[in-house]
Nucleic acid binder design. Sequence first.
DNA 1: TTCCGGATTACCT
DNA 2: GGTAATCCGGAAA
Length: 202
Amino acid sequence: MNSLLPRSFYEQYDTITLAQKLLGCDLISQQSAGQTAGIIVETEAYLTNDPACHAYRKKTTRNAAMFGPAGTVYVYLIYGLYHCLNVVSAAEGLGEAVLIRAIEPTEGIELMEQRRINQTKSEKTPVFKPEQLCNGPAKLVQALGISLSDHNGTCLVSGSLSINSASLVDFEMVATTRIGLTQGVDLPYRFYIKGNRFVSRK
DNA sequence: TTCCGGATTACCT
DNA sequence: GGTAATCCGGAAA
């Protein structure tokens, strides 16, 4: 059985390598409502010298968590209405992170559905196929019950959000360009599990 | 102090 | 395929 990744796991790799190593690992959210979990199938790397990175310019209240030690959780608000989840990487004070873009739901799927339904602003109740639950950075944040106030700056080694060692190891990885950016668009810093249907975009 | 645009998603045609 | 929803950090459009 797989086990909780220790601090040393996050410290021992550079950001790009960590983004690749996180593929296949289990992302687990433990809350009073129940446990939800999924396999990480898609990630993106954000480096400190990369204009698309939030820490590219300087440390602010918003991006402060990115400058914490490797294994810190960085959550931020995007487009004023969604949140994204990052794993802080590299040396403390550097400001690099791995964006978790998609997971394959494995546990607590009903709870995930409920959270997604509750957080979707719509007149009628949406119906989600399993692959629509977590196939995007803001979607998995909703499904796992992650919030800015509860999780930003927390620790993956000792908090309610954690990552276990890879449960999926036998796969092909694709490296390609990142999604939704206007800067650094040509850098091949997006990684996903080839053929996995829970990836946000092929 | 003001204004622009973003590591997105859902719903419309 | 196009766009509305909706907040805030950073540049000064």
